[in-house]
Design a protein around this nucleic acid. Sequence first.
DNA 1: AAACATCGCAACCGCTCCAAC
DNA 2: CGTTGGAGCGGTTGCGATGTT
Length: 324
Amino acid sequence: MGRHSCSVKQKLRKGLWSPEEDEKLCNYITNFGIGSWSSVPKLAGLQRCGKSCRLRWINYLRPDLKRGMFSQDEEDKIISLHQVLGNRWAQIAAQLPGRTDNEIKNFWNSSLKKKLMKQGIDPNTHKPLKENQIIKDEENCTIKTSMLQIPPLNEIANGQFTESKQVFDLLFVSDFQSNSNPSEYNSEVLAQYHDHQSEFENNQNYVFCSASNVTKLEHGQMTETDFGSSSTSRMSSSNSSNMCSNQNTAGIQINGMSENSEALSWDIENKMESLFQYPYIGIKNEELKSSPSHERDQLHGNSTSGDFMSNYPLSSLTEEFKWA
DNA sequence: AAACATCGCAACCGCTCCAAC
DNA sequence: CGTTGGAGCGGTTGCGATGTT
Protein backbone atom coordinates (compact mmCIF):
# COMPACT_ATOMS: atom_id res chain seq x y z
CA MET A 1 0.00 0.00 0.00
CA GLY A 2 1.30 3.35 -0.90
CA ARG A 3 1.05 6.47 1.11
CA HIS A 4 -2.00 8.58 0.97
CA SER A 5 -1.81 11.35 -1.52
CA CYS A 6 -0.89 14.56 0.21
CA SER A 7 -4.01 16.23 -1.07
CA VAL A 8 -6.17 13.63 0.65
CA LYS A 9 -4.96 14.48 4.13
CA GLN A 10 -6.26 18.00 4.00
CA LYS A 11 -8.61 19.84 1.73
CA LEU A 12 -6.01 20.97 -0.75
CA ARG A 13 -6.35 22.22 -4.26
CA LYS A 14 -5.54 19.93 -7.15
CA GLY A 15 -5.37 20.32 -10.88
CA LEU A 16 -4.09 23.18 -12.93
CA TRP A 17 -2.30 26.05 -11.25
CA SER A 18 -3.77 29.51 -11.48
CA PRO A 19 -1.56 32.52 -12.31
CA GLU A 20 -2.08 33.73 -8.74
CA GLU A 21 -0.78 30.50 -7.31
CA ASP A 22 2.19 30.61 -9.65
CA GLU A 23 2.94 34.12 -8.52
CA LYS A 24 2.75 33.20 -4.85
CA LEU A 25 5.09 30.27 -5.31
CA CYS A 26 7.49 32.26 -7.46
CA ASN A 27 7.59 35.12 -4.99
CA TYR A 28 8.18 32.84 -2.08
CA ILE A 29 11.03 30.91 -3.68
CA THR A 30 12.60 34.05 -5.09
CA ASN A 31 12.62 35.63 -1.65
CA PHE A 32 13.36 32.68 0.58
CA GLY A 33 14.75 29.98 -1.66
CA ILE A 34 13.93 26.32 -1.59
CA GLY A 35 14.02 24.89 1.88
CA SER A 36 11.69 22.14 2.94
CA TRP A 37 9.05 21.59 0.30
CA SER A 38 6.58 20.39 2.87
CA SER A 39 6.63 23.79 4.52
CA VAL A 40 6.52 25.81 1.30
CA PRO A 41 2.73 25.77 0.79
CA LYS A 42 2.03 27.04 4.28
CA LEU A 43 4.68 29.73 4.15
CA ALA A 44 3.75 30.77 0.64
CA GLY A 45 0.07 30.84 1.43
CA LEU A 46 -0.91 28.08 -0.96
CA GLN A 47 -3.60 25.43 -0.64
CA ARG A 48 -1.36 22.87 -2.25
CA CYS A 49 0.77 20.04 -0.99
CA GLY A 50 4.54 20.45 -0.96
CA LYS A 51 4.93 17.81 -3.58
CA SER A 52 2.69 19.70 -5.94
CA CYS A 53 4.66 22.92 -5.31
CA ARG A 54 7.92 21.20 -5.95
CA LEU A 55 6.65 19.78 -9.24
CA ARG A 56 5.24 23.10 -10.35
CA TRP A 57 8.50 24.85 -9.63
CA ILE A 58 10.73 22.23 -11.25
CA ASN A 59 8.64 21.66 -14.33
CA TYR A 60 7.25 25.09 -15.00
CA LEU A 61 8.33 28.04 -12.90
CA ARG A 62 12.08 27.58 -12.60
CA PRO A 63 13.74 30.56 -14.28
CA ASP A 64 16.43 28.52 -16.05
CA LEU A 65 13.91 26.48 -18.00
CA LYS A 66 14.21 26.44 -21.74
CA ARG A 67 10.74 26.52 -23.19
CA GLY A 68 9.68 25.66 -26.69
CA MET A 69 10.49 23.06 -29.26
CA PHE A 70 13.34 20.65 -28.91
CA SER A 71 16.18 21.32 -31.31
CA GLN A 72 17.51 18.62 -33.60
CA ASP A 73 20.60 18.49 -31.45
CA GLU A 74 18.55 17.93 -28.31
CA GLU A 75 16.48 15.32 -30.08
CA ASP A 76 19.57 13.40 -31.17
CA LYS A 77 20.97 13.63 -27.70
CA ILE A 78 17.80 12.28 -26.13
CA ILE A 79 17.74 9.33 -28.49
CA SER A 80 21.38 8.53 -27.87
CA LEU A 81 21.01 8.87 -24.13
CA HIS A 82 17.86 6.79 -24.10
CA GLN A 83 19.74 4.08 -25.90
CA VAL A 84 22.12 3.84 -22.97
CA LEU A 85 20.02 4.92 -20.03
CA GLY A 86 16.55 3.72 -20.95
CA ASN A 87 13.67 5.50 -19.26
CA ARG A 88 15.87 7.23 -16.73
CA TRP A 89 14.41 10.58 -17.55
CA ALA A 90 16.03 12.43 -14.72
CA GLN A 91 19.47 11.30 -15.82
CA ILE A 92 18.69 12.17 -19.41
CA ALA A 93 17.41 15.58 -18.35
CA ALA A 94 20.65 16.17 -16.48
CA GLN A 95 22.41 16.16 -19.84
CA LEU A 96 20.03 18.70 -21.34
CA PRO A 97 20.29 22.06 -19.60
CA GLY A 98 16.95 23.80 -19.22
CA ARG A 99 14.90 20.71 -19.89
CA THR A 100 12.98 18.74 -17.28
CA ASP A 101 12.57 15.04 -16.95
CA ASN A 102 8.82 15.43 -17.37
CA GLU A 103 9.25 17.43 -20.54
CA ILE A 104 11.65 14.91 -22.03
CA LYS A 105 9.43 12.02 -20.99
CA ASN A 106 6.43 13.64 -22.66
CA PHE A 107 8.43 14.47 -25.76
CA TRP A 108 9.66 10.91 -25.97
CA ASN A 109 6.24 9.37 -25.51
CA SER A 110 4.40 11.71 -27.80
CA SER A 111 6.91 12.30 -30.54
CA LEU A 112 10.25 10.53 -30.55
CA LYS A 113 8.83 7.08 -30.01
CA LYS A 114 6.66 7.41 -33.10
CA LYS A 115 9.48 8.91 -35.08
CA LEU A 116 11.73 5.96 -34.34
CA MET A 117 8.95 3.51 -35.13
CA LYS A 118 8.52 5.18 -38.50
CA GLN A 119 12.20 4.70 -39.14
CA GLY A 120 11.78 1.01 -38.34
CA ILE A 121 13.58 1.27 -35.05
CA ASP A 122 12.25 -0.26 -31.88
CA PRO A 123 12.17 2.66 -29.42
CA ASN A 124 12.77 0.34 -26.51
CA THR A 125 15.77 -1.49 -27.85
CA HIS A 126 16.93 0.99 -30.50
CA LYS A 127 17.38 -1.90 -32.85
CA PRO A 128 15.64 -2.61 -36.14
CA LEU A 129 12.09 -3.61 -35.37
CA LYS A 130 12.06 -7.05 -36.94
CA GLU A 131 15.39 -8.13 -35.51
CA ASN A 132 15.07 -7.04 -31.96
CA GLN A 133 14.19 -10.41 -30.61
CA ILE A 134 16.87 -11.87 -28.49
CA ILE A 135 17.30 -15.49 -29.40
CA LYS A 136 18.59 -17.68 -26.71
CA ASP A 137 20.00 -20.90 -27.97
CA GLU A 138 19.85 -23.11 -24.95
CA GLU A 139 21.53 -26.03 -26.64
CA ASN A 140 24.87 -24.55 -27.39
CA CYS A 141 24.69 -21.88 -24.76
CA THR A 142 24.95 -19.16 -27.36
CA ILE A 143 23.27 -15.84 -26.86
CA LYS A 144 22.57 -13.92 -30.00
CA THR A 145 20.99 -10.68 -30.94
CA SER A 146 20.73 -8.84 -34.18
CA MET A 147 23.61 -6.64 -33.22
CA LEU A 148 25.77 -8.80 -31.08
CA GLN A 149 26.79 -12.39 -30.90
CA ILE A 150 28.50 -13.57 -27.81
CA PRO A 151 30.34 -16.80 -28.32
CA PRO A 152 29.44 -19.68 -26.04
CA LEU A 153 30.89 -18.82 -22.69
CA ASN A 154 32.15 -22.29 -21.98
CA GLU A 155 34.09 -22.20 -25.24
CA ILE A 156 35.61 -18.87 -24.41
CA ALA A 157 36.59 -20.19 -21.05
CA ASN A 158 38.12 -23.28 -22.57
CA GLY A 159 40.19 -21.14 -24.85
CA GLN A 160 38.51 -22.41 -28.01
CA PHE A 161 38.06 -18.92 -29.38
CA THR A 162 41.58 -18.05 -30.13
CA GLU A 163 41.14 -15.79 -33.11
CA SER A 164 41.69 -12.11 -32.54
CA LYS A 165 38.23 -11.40 -31.27
CA GLN A 166 37.49 -8.99 -28.56
CA VAL A 167 35.53 -10.18 -25.62
CA PHE A 168 33.42 -7.48 -24.14
CA ASP A 169 32.11 -7.29 -20.72
CA LEU A 170 29.12 -9.56 -20.89
CA LEU A 171 27.35 -7.97 -18.05
CA PHE A 172 27.79 -4.60 -19.57
CA VAL A 173 26.67 -5.81 -22.96
CA SER A 174 23.68 -7.40 -21.39
CA ASP A 175 22.86 -4.19 -19.60
CA PHE A 176 23.40 -2.25 -22.74
CA GLN A 177 21.07 -4.41 -24.73
CA SER A 178 18.36 -4.34 -22.16
CA ASN A 179 18.61 -0.62 -21.61
CA SER A 180 20.49 -0.98 -18.37
CA ASN A 181 17.76 -2.85 -16.61
CA PRO A 182 18.85 -5.82 -14.66
CA SER A 183 16.87 -8.57 -16.30
CA GLU A 184 16.45 -12.26 -16.62
CA TYR A 185 18.89 -12.07 -19.42
CA ASN A 186 21.36 -10.53 -17.05
CA SER A 187 20.81 -13.24 -14.53
CA GLU A 188 21.42 -15.84 -17.14
CA VAL A 189 24.65 -14.26 -18.26
CA LEU A 190 25.64 -13.80 -14.68
CA ALA A 191 24.98 -17.43 -13.91
CA GLN A 192 26.98 -18.56 -16.90
CA TYR A 193 29.74 -16.21 -16.01
CA HIS A 194 29.75 -17.60 -12.51
CA ASP A 195 29.98 -21.15 -13.78
CA HIS A 196 33.12 -20.38 -15.73
CA GLN A 197 34.59 -17.63 -13.65
CA SER A 198 37.76 -19.38 -12.64
CA GLU A 199 38.30 -20.56 -16.18
CA PHE A 200 37.94 -17.03 -17.47
CA GLU A 201 40.45 -15.84 -15.00
CA ASN A 202 42.98 -18.41 -16.10
CA ASN A 203 42.40 -17.88 -19.78
CA GLN A 204 45.11 -15.68 -21.10
CA ASN A 205 43.52 -15.16 -24.48
CA TYR A 206 40.57 -13.14 -23.34
CA VAL A 207 40.11 -10.45 -20.85
CA PHE A 208 36.75 -9.24 -19.73
CA CYS A 209 36.55 -5.60 -19.11
CA SER A 210 34.10 -2.83 -18.81
CA ALA A 211 32.56 -0.44 -21.25
CA SER A 212 35.26 1.63 -22.85
CA ASN A 213 38.31 -0.48 -23.02
CA VAL A 214 38.78 -3.89 -24.41
CA THR A 215 41.99 -5.55 -23.64
CA LYS A 216 43.43 -8.68 -25.00
CA LEU A 217 46.59 -10.56 -24.40
CA GLU A 218 48.30 -11.45 -27.59
CA HIS A 219 51.54 -13.34 -27.38
CA GLY A 220 51.98 -12.02 -23.90
CA GLN A 221 51.54 -8.42 -24.99
CA MET A 222 48.76 -6.29 -23.65
CA THR A 223 46.81 -4.34 -26.22
CA GLU A 224 43.89 -2.09 -25.61
CA THR A 225 41.30 -0.19 -27.48
CA ASP A 226 39.39 2.75 -26.22
CA PHE A 227 35.85 3.71 -27.17
CA GLY A 228 36.23 7.21 -25.90
CA SER A 229 37.93 9.87 -27.92
CA SER A 230 39.87 11.26 -25.02
CA SER A 231 43.16 10.03 -23.79
CA THR A 232 42.93 7.56 -20.98
CA SER A 233 44.19 8.13 -17.55
CA ARG A 234 44.53 4.82 -15.92
CA MET A 235 42.72 3.82 -12.82
CA SER A 236 44.21 2.40 -9.77
CA SER A 237 42.86 -1.08 -9.31
CA SER A 238 42.86 -0.72 -5.58
CA ASN A 239 40.91 2.47 -5.42
CA SER A 240 37.76 1.94 -7.39
CA SER A 241 35.73 4.13 -5.07
CA ASN A 242 37.45 7.17 -6.48
CA MET A 243 36.91 6.27 -10.06
CA CYS A 244 34.29 8.85 -10.71
CA SER A 245 36.40 11.69 -9.52
CA ASN A 246 39.42 10.53 -11.45
CA GLN A 247 37.96 9.94 -14.82
CA ASN A 248 37.61 12.43 -17.57
CA THR A 249 34.26 13.23 -19.12
CA ALA A 250 34.57 10.30 -21.46
CA GLY A 251 33.67 8.79 -18.17
CA ILE A 252 34.57 5.23 -18.73
CA GLN A 253 37.79 3.63 -17.76
CA ILE A 254 38.80 0.11 -17.26
CA ASN A 255 39.13 -0.89 -13.70
CA GLY A 256 42.59 -2.10 -12.87
CA MET A 257 44.16 -1.64 -16.26
CA SER A 258 47.80 -2.34 -15.81
CA GLU A 259 50.67 -4.26 -17.27
CA ASN A 260 49.88 -6.95 -14.78
CA SER A 261 47.24 -9.26 -16.11
CA GLU A 262 46.22 -10.32 -12.62
CA ALA A 263 44.74 -6.93 -12.14
CA LEU A 264 42.26 -7.73 -14.84
CA SER A 265 40.62 -10.59 -13.05
CA TRP A 266 37.67 -9.47 -11.04
CA ASP A 267 35.05 -11.30 -9.20
CA ILE A 268 31.43 -10.76 -10.06
CA GLU A 269 30.86 -8.37 -7.22
CA ASN A 270 33.71 -6.13 -8.31
CA LYS A 271 32.49 -6.24 -11.86
CA MET A 272 29.02 -5.24 -10.91
CA GLU A 273 30.33 -2.57 -8.62
CA SER A 274 32.60 -1.20 -11.26
CA LEU A 275 29.81 -1.11 -13.79
CA PHE A 276 27.95 1.20 -11.51
CA GLN A 277 30.88 3.53 -11.36
CA TYR A 278 30.10 4.70 -14.84
CA PRO A 279 27.81 7.65 -14.93
CA TYR A 280 26.39 7.01 -18.33
CA ILE A 281 25.91 3.32 -17.95
CA GLY A 282 23.75 3.36 -14.90
CA ILE A 283 25.44 5.22 -12.13
CA LYS A 284 23.22 5.61 -9.14
CA ASN A 285 21.83 9.04 -8.65
CA GLU A 286 22.86 8.95 -5.05
CA GLU A 287 26.49 8.69 -6.10
CA LEU A 288 26.13 11.79 -8.15
CA LYS A 289 24.35 13.61 -5.38
CA SER A 290 27.08 12.78 -2.92
CA SER A 291 29.82 13.91 -5.25
CA PRO A 292 31.15 17.43 -4.96
CA SER A 293 29.45 19.74 -7.42
CA HIS A 294 32.41 20.04 -9.78
CA GLU A 295 32.53 16.28 -10.00
CA ARG A 296 28.83 16.12 -10.68
CA ASP A 297 29.32 18.64 -13.41
CA GLN A 298 31.99 16.50 -14.91
CA LEU A 299 29.86 13.43 -14.66
CA HIS A 300 26.98 15.25 -16.19
CA GLY A 301 29.08 16.60 -18.96
CA ASN A 302 28.65 20.17 -17.84
CA SER A 303 32.31 20.85 -17.53
CA THR A 304 34.09 23.03 -20.00
CA SER A 305 36.35 20.17 -20.94
CA GLY A 306 33.74 18.95 -23.39
CA ASP A 307 30.26 17.58 -23.34
CA PHE A 308 29.17 14.07 -22.98
CA MET A 309 28.28 13.30 -26.54
CA SER A 310 31.50 14.52 -28.04
CA ASN A 311 33.49 12.42 -25.66
CA TYR A 312 31.31 9.40 -25.83
CA PRO A 313 30.14 8.83 -29.36
CA LEU A 314 27.37 6.32 -29.08
CA SER A 315 27.22 5.52 -32.73
CA SER A 316 30.75 4.27 -32.65
CA LEU A 317 30.11 2.53 -29.40
CA THR A 318 27.30 0.41 -30.74
CA GLU A 319 29.41 -0.27 -33.79
CA GLU A 320 32.17 -1.55 -31.55
CA PHE A 321 29.84 -4.05 -30.00
CA LYS A 322 29.52 -6.01 -33.15
CA TRP A 323 31.35 -9.23 -32.95
CA ALA A 324 32.51 -9.90 -36.43
C1' DA B 1 -21.64 23.02 -37.14
C1' DA B 2 -21.49 19.16 -34.24
C1' DA B 3 -19.62 14.94 -32.73
C1' DC B 4 -15.88 12.26 -32.23
C1' DA B 5 -10.87 11.07 -32.25
C1' DT B 6 -6.27 12.15 -31.43
C1' DC B 7 -2.52 14.60 -29.46
C1' DG B 8 0.42 16.92 -26.19
C1' DC B 9 1.22 18.56 -21.93
C1' DA B 10 0.65 19.40 -17.00
C1' DA B 11 -0.20 17.28 -12.96
C1' DC B 12 -1.03 13.39 -10.08
C1' DC B 13 -0.07 8.80 -8.10
C1' DG B 14 2.47 5.21 -6.20
C1' DC B 15 6.63 3.73 -5.25
C1' DT B 16 11.66 3.68 -3.55
C1' DC B 17 15.35 5.63 -1.14
C1' DC B 18 17.37 7.62 2.69
C1' DA B 19 18.18 10.58 6.61
C1' DA B 20 16.52 11.62 11.07
C1' DC B 21 14.69 10.04 15.11
C1' DC C 1 17.25 -1.55 14.47
C1' DG C 2 12.68 -0.22 13.22
C1' DT C 3 9.73 3.65 12.07
C1' DT C 4 8.59 7.88 9.97
C1' DG C 5 8.40 11.44 6.74
C1' DG C 6 10.47 14.15 2.98
C1' DA C 7 12.45 14.09 -1.59
C1' DG C 8 12.64 12.42 -5.94
C1' DC C 9 11.58 9.35 -9.78
C1' DG C 10 8.93 7.03 -13.50
C1' DG C 11 4.38 5.71 -15.00
C1' DT C 12 -0.16 7.14 -15.71
C1' DT C 13 -4.14 10.05 -16.05
C1' DG C 14 -6.98 13.99 -17.22
C1' DC C 15 -8.06 17.69 -19.88
C1' DG C 16 -7.80 21.35 -23.24
C1' DA C 17 -6.51 22.06 -28.02
C1' DT C 18 -6.59 20.59 -32.50
C1' DG C 19 -7.83 17.67 -36.34
C1' DT C 20 -11.10 14.74 -38.83
C1' DT C 21 -15.41 13.03 -40.34
